[in-house]
Each structure stands twice: as C-alpha cells, then as structure tokens.
Simulated scan of single mutants.
Amino acid sequence: MNLHDDLLGVRAVAFDVDGTLAGGDHRVSPRTLQALADLRAAGVEPIIVTGRIVGSATAILADAGIDGYAVASNGAVAVDTRDPDPLHAAVMDPDEAQAVVAFCEGRAVEPSLFTVDTMVVEEGSVVHDLLVRADPTAPTRAVPPGELPFTAATKACIFGEPATLDALDGEIRAKFPRMVRSMDTAFEMSAAGADKWVALSAILERIGIPPERCAGIGDGENDVVWLSRVGFPVAMGNAREPVREVARLEIGHHADEAVAELVEALLRARAAAR
C-alpha cells in the first residue's frame, strides 16, 4: 500500500466505528484493537468518533488496553477516559426528540432515543433486538411510549428497511434538516450545535494537535463534515458516496479489517522513513 507523505506525518487518527472500525458483526476484531494499541505506542493519538453511546465508545479503547479520547452519540458527548467528567455533553430539545418519535407513527419505520449511557426503544419494537445484536455490551431498554427519555436524549434515530428509508429520504430531510443517513438502515440526529466535528475539534485543541495533522476514517453521512475538516480524510470501501467525495484515500471494506491493514501499513511506512 503506497501512502501519501501527508498521512505519514499525522499525529492523530480519528475512527468512526460502525461500518469502519467494527467488522460486519459490529465487533472490533483483535487485530484492529492491536492496531489501535500499536498506533498509540508509535506516538499517534487514536480517537474514537462514533454514533454509539459513550460506554460503547470507551470500551473499544479499554479493549485495546489504552486510555484516550472518544466522541459518542454523534458528537453529543466527548470524554477523556482518564477523567470522570465528560469534556462535553449536549441533549436535544425535548420537543424535537418527541417530533422524531411522532414522525414514525403510522409509517414502516421505528424510533430510538439515545441518552448518554442507554439506548431506548418503545416496547415491541424490532429495533431492540437489532441494537442488542449490534452491541450486546451496551444497555438497551424497551419502555412504554410515554416513558421515552425526551428530556435526556442525546440522539434520535429512525430505523427502517433500506428501501423504506430511500422512499422517505426527502420527507425525513425536509422535516428534520439535521438528520443524516448514517447507515442504509438508519437516519440519526443529535442536539443542535452538537456534531462529531464540534467534539473532535475540542479534543484536538485540548491535546494540541492541529486538524491538518489529523487523519480520519469513516463511511456514513454523519462523517462527512468532520472528515472534510481534518488533514487526511479516508473513506471505507463500503462508504456512502458523500464520504468518497471528500476523501483523499479509499481503502477496503470494513468486513475485511481494512482499517487494521491501513494502520499496519502506516506504522511500517513511518518506521521505514526514520
């Protein structure tokens, strides 16, 4: 793999999780966890930037045996695992969260509200099992519709079959302009003013790394803004088209451990250049 000199000089790499760092089974493989640890050992800061809740984001660093920084719930929460207090936390307007849930009524889609530490769905929702399969370690609750956490939501999601979401795409974006298509099966939206870039830029400023010395790897529409602002954006082979348009490099599919392959190649190239 031939890598651009700009990539060899990065001081941090930010990683999306689902569709990027995680494989087709939504798990981060031992090889990929080792790549994160090796990256840190080489003096490059790995940063998790995900739509998952904060516990799931920080668990990846813990599984890699390292401390560090994570952005969760699409930028609504940012943490340093060495500090008990979040660096940043934002909740949605309760009326906006309620509007997302109301939109799903009578349509072949289902809502979910994320809080800082829990994923919440309505009782009887098929999304419950989907979320549990995607991340068995994360707390997922099913509650009566009237008990959804409208006042504590960090992120609201609309889940559905890809064809159904394709048909509703224009209507969803018109109703909720901040909604992005993070996966083929999901739209999602965080609090106003909270996105992955806001949180990531705060972390980069905290650790003294300019954005141009940071690489980023992602696949979904919720990755476009922050990828376009780092120095070396990378698209997965399974990325949605808007991600490919801002990327300087495209790698393989997330199911084939393409992130681990890239990090390993980066570390070899850095060592050879010394």
Rank of each mutant, 00 (worst) to 15 (best):
Trp226Gln: 06
Trp226Cys: 06
Trp226Pro: 00
Leu227Asp: 03
Leu227His: 06
Ser228Glu: 09
Ser228Leu: 04
Ser228Asn: 07
Arg229Asn: 11
Arg229Asp: 01
Val230Ile: 15
Val230Asp: 05
Val230Met: 12
Val230Glu: 08
Val230Phe: 06
Val230His: 09
Val230Leu: 06
Gly231Asp: 04
Phe232Arg: 03
Pro233Tyr: 09
Pro233Trp: 13
Val234Ala: 03
Val234Thr: 10
Ala235Leu: 05
Ala235Trp: 03
Met236Ala: 11
Met236Gly: 07
Met236Asn: 09
Gly237Leu: 03
Asn238Glu: 01
Asn238Ala: 07
Ala239Phe: 08
Ala239Arg: 10
Arg240Leu: 09
Arg240Phe: 10
Glu241Ala: 15
Glu241Ser: 08
Pro242Val: 11
Val243Glu: 02
Val243Ala: 08
Val243Ser: 03
Arg244Ser: 10
Glu245Phe: 00
Glu245Cys: 01
Val246Ile: 15
Val246Glu: 01
Ala247Met: 12
Ala247Thr: 04
Leu249Arg: 14
Leu249Asn: 05
Glu250Ala: 14
Glu250Leu: 01
Ile251Cys: 02
Ile251Pro: 01
Ile251Thr: 04
Ile251Leu: 06
Ile251Gln: 02
Ile251Trp: 02
Ile251Asn: 01
Gly252Cys: 11
Gly252Met: 12
Gly252Trp: 13
Gly252Lys: 11
His253Thr: 08
His253Met: 15
His253Gln: 15
His254Pro: 00
His254Arg: 08
Ala255Val: 09
Ala255Glu: 15
Asp256Pro: 00
Glu257Cys: 07
Glu257Gln: 15
Glu257Arg: 05
Ala258Glu: 07
Ala258His: 06
Ala258Trp: 06
Ala258Asn: 05
Ala258Gln: 06
Val259Gly: 06
Val259Pro: 06
Ala260Val: 02
Ala260Glu: 11
Glu261Trp: 00
Leu262Asp: 12
Val263Leu: 15
Val263Asp: 08
Val263Arg: 00
Glu264Ile: 10
Ala265Gln: 10
Ala265Val: 02
Ala265Tyr: 04
Leu266Gly: 10
Leu266Met: 13
Leu267Met: 10
Arg268Phe: 01
Ala269His: 04
Ala269Gln: 12
Arg270Thr: 10
Ala271Pro: 02
Ala271Ser: 14
